[in-house]
Design a protein around this nucleic acid. Structure first.
Lengths: 102, 102
DNA sequence: GCTTATGATCGTATTTTTACGATAAAGGAC
DNA sequence: GTCCTTTATCGTAAAAATACGATCATAAGC
């Protein structure tokens, strides 16, 4: 009658969690398209992205936040607008992690 | 007063959509752990995976389906059990796509 | 045949994500 | 100062994902 209280929990490293967050961020068509657009247009403002997506401005802004939180893009305030670009450093890290994965 | 009826829609290639599906599949801690476990234990049955995750059997089975649909793992029926393993081909394709991305 | 073991699927409750309009904040033109 | 532009955030409705118990299906052992 010996019950072992085995506390189960996810067992992932910090790197794996960070990688997972990026995967999740890229696992949505709008965000995938945003990132691709940014790779083709290195410097652009929110409005440019809104124009190429079938979504309202508020929704795009929300998606940009997800990408920012994942570290994949960074936005710098440029007057009244915000200039977005890919975070090359994070993208490089991401690629390397995926390459080493599995 | 000329209104251009511009039908907006996501503009992603088939490859990008497939890649996105894999990203989404890997964007969950349980599934990330399953894939890592499979990479360390190339041959195992569903029960083995259930044992290392803090989830019910039904939930794990559901996660395995997501990974199967994404093509990342394949399960072959082995008697009453199902033997799972990573789909090396898909993983290779995934890595290559990520490498070329952005 | 009956029983046990294994795992997929069903039905459903809960949680999270997604999407939008409305509003707020901040900078430039005047 | 007043507008106008730009974009983030708020509040919320709808959709999707997650998790679980219960059930079903299949195969092996007897």
């Amino acid at each position: 009658m010996d019950i072992t209280h085995e506390v189960k929990s996810y067992d992932l490293t910090t790197d794996e969690l960070r990688l997972m967050q990026m995967m999740k961020a890229l696992g949505h068509p709008a965000r995938m398209q945003i990132v691709r657009y940014l790779s083709e247009n290195p410097q652009c403002i929110t409005g440019d992205i809104v124009d190429v997506l079938p979504l309202a401005q508020a929704t795009v802004s929300q998606h940009l936040k997800v990408l920012r939180d994942a570290g994949l893009v960074c936005g710098t305030i440029e007057g009244p607008a915000t200039c977005y670009c890919l975070c090359e450093q994070t993208v490089a890290w991401f690629k390397q992690q995926v390459g080493d994965l599995f």
